[in-house]
């Protein structure tokens, strides 16, 4: 998969800062970014390609706002599965097309028994419930408990902020 150890040099970091809020919607966006950084468009494209290949960039494209698009049944689902199977199940759940993210996180006992998180997306609560049932069936007896946590308010959400220099 991705290489966590790859190092960004100064120009890479400047490209991240210049593009993380989005590309300019003009005919030659990489050229416009390149001009602002005093390099060539070719250099910007090559470095974006390299960051894409190394996994630092997951994808380049339109970033939809699922909530605006009517995906109101979004839920953070949390599952208690046997630790020795968490990787196997994480990979299976992460591969489902209605799951945007799946994570293994530690339990925090006694308050928190869950070790697998999956962000599940549906157009409404009923659709979400069906999708959660699909995951529950996939896990069978290894689903020792699960819950869904709906978000009621976004109090703060900022993207990655990478600062150059200091």
């Amino acid at each position: 998969m991705s290489d966590d150890t790859i190092k960004l040099d100064e120009l890479d970091r400047r490209i991240v800062v210049a593009t993380q809020a989005g590309l300019p919607l003009v005919a030659e966006p990489y050229q416009q970014v390149a001009e602002a950084l005093g390099v060539t468009a070719e250099e910007v494209m090559q470095r974006l390609q390299r960051m894409l290949e190394s996994g630092i960039i997951r994808r380049i494209g339109a970033v939809p706002n699922h909530y605006t698009l009517g995906f109101r049944g979004n839920g953070m689902t949390v599952w208690d599965v046997p630790d020795e199977k968490v990787v196997e199940y994480g990979e299976k759940i992460g591969a489902l097309d209605f799951v945007s993210h799946a994570y293994h996180r530690p339990r925090f006992l006694p308050e928190w028994r869950y070790n697998l998180f999956a962000m599940v997306h549906g157009r409404n609560r009923d659709e979400l419930k069906q999708k959660i049932d699909t995951i529950a069936q996939m896990l069978g007896e290894d689903n020792r408990a699960h819950e869904v946590l709906f978000s009621t308010r976004i109090l703060k959400k900022t993207g990655l902020r990478l600062v150059t220099g200091s």
Binding site: S2, V16, T19, Q20, A21, G22, L23, L25, L48, M51, L52, G55, I56, I57, R58, R59, I60, G61, A62, V63, P64, N65, L160
Partner: peptide
């Protein structure tokens, strides 16, 4: 859409 561009890890 919130933007068009790279999504960083």
């Amino acid at each position: 859409i919130s933007r068009v561009g790279p999504v960083f890890k």
